[in-house]
Structure formats: structure tokens, C-alpha cells
Amino acid sequence: MTSHEKSTRKGWALSGPALLWTSLFFLAPMGFVVAVSFWRRVGGTLDRTLTLDNYRTIFEDDVFTTALRSSLEVVLITVVASLLVAYPFAYILAYRVPARWQRPLLILAVLPFWTSYVVRSYSWLLVLAKNGVINQAMMTSGLISSPITLANTRLATVIGFVHFFTMLVSLTIYASLTQIPESYRKAARDLGASPVATFLRVTLPLSMPGVVVGAFLTFVLAIGDFITPQILGGGNELLLPQAIMLQVQRRGDFPLAAALSVLLLVVVGAVYAVFARRLSLERR
């Protein structure tokens, strides 16, 4: 046995427990979800003959195609809005704030990240509710005469998402911006570029890795999130994770829930495939 073979063996042996855990409790259940998605619920039991019925249901029933479309819309709006809010914020932090203030400010900016999903969404409900902070503030100041509906709308879901992902995307963009040597911007100005041209031709392209990573993370995490749309969006609009949960909790239709989960995995996988090249370039 060569020494490389020996170390290959040892390496795999040491990774064994983690690998076993991931296989047993991640790969196997995922495989099982895929399998169940091809079964059918008959009454209270599972019919294990393979069928495409669930997928047919998904693509024929308006409820599910709408849920998919809504999910994509909400998530894309979230990605764009988060980038628009976070980019200037990260830019100011990276280039206009004295170095010793940057880290403390950044840490402060991501603090609310560490409220749990449930608590964070619940807090937004307190802000957006009919008798919540915003409505009462606007009524007291005379801006509106009767409360407006903010909670239980798509807007509320997007606000909740943008809140969370602004923090995340600020981090990735800030990291990218601080990696650009100052001399690049100096050189651009020196060669005659205006501040706007310097930004568009040098800073922005060089910060794209942070933008891409942030956008990708936002997409993946937002499209799989159940809590924010459930608490803030309410029942008015069904997103994909809510549709899955509905099958699990109310209908008990696990095969359909499994098929919807597979759909979710496929969407994420497709987006990953699109981003993969840029994500791996980033790593280099």
C-alpha cells in the first residue's frame, strides 16, 4: 500500500462519522422525499406505485403554479431591493467611514440578524399591524386618518425579507469592496475618470463577486423560508414553502408536499447551476 493510499484511507476513516451522519440523516431522507414524491396518497395511506400524479397536480392546479410564480416574484423583488438598499450602505461603510469605525458599525448592523426567524417576523408584525407602530405614528402625525393595511400583504413579506437580507448582503458587498486596493480608484481618477466613471468602470465591476454571492444566498434562503411569508404575508398569498407546509399540516398529503419540495430543490439547483461559474470564480 502506497503512503498516499494509506493517507486516503485514514482521511476517509476520520471523515467517516460526519459522512455517516450526513448520509443517514440528509442524503437518505432527501432520497426518500424524492421517492415519496412519486407515490400517491389514497385516503389515509400511501399508494407506493410510482406515478407522476403529484407533478401533474402541481402543474395543472392553479394554486401551485401561482405559488411558484409568487415565490419567484417575491424572492426576485427581495434580491433586487436588498441589493439596492445594501450596496450604498456597504459602499459608504467601506470607503467613507474611518477604518476604526467600520468593524463596530458592521457588527452593529448585523446584530438583529441574531433574533430568531420567528421573533424577527413577529417584531415586524408589531411594527406593521393595523394598530402597530407605523400606523399609529402616521395617524398621530395626521398623515393618514384611518389605519392602512400593511400586515398580511406581499409588501410585509418583502419588508421582512429585505430587512434580513440587507444585513447579509451588506456583509458580502462590504467584504468585496474592502478587497479592492485604493490604488485602483486613485489610478482611475488620475487617468481622467470622473467619480461616476470610476464607480461604474472600476469599483462596481470589481465588487461584483460580493454582489453575486449575496444575491445567490438571498435567493436560496428566501425561496425556502416558510416563517416570514407565513407570519407577515398571512394567508392572502401562498408561497411555495407555505404550500408545502399546508400539505403537511392540514391536508396530510405527504406525497404532494414531497413533490413540491423536489420542485423547490430543482429551482435552487437551477439557480446554483447558473451562478456556479461565478461563485467558483469568486473562490479562486
Binding site: 486596493p181 485602483y184 486613485k186 489610478a187 475618470a193
Partner: peptide
């Protein structure tokens, strides 16, 4: 940008 000077930077600063 408006000076008739240009600089070659120590780290070159090639884009």
C-alpha cells in the same frame, strides 16, 4: 484627473 501628471503606482494598480 485635471492635472497634466499621471502616476505609476507602486503596486501598478492595473485593473
Amino acid at each position: 484627473a485635471r492635472r497634466p501628471t499621471t502616476t505609476v503606482f507602486q503596486d501598478y494598480a492595473l485593473f
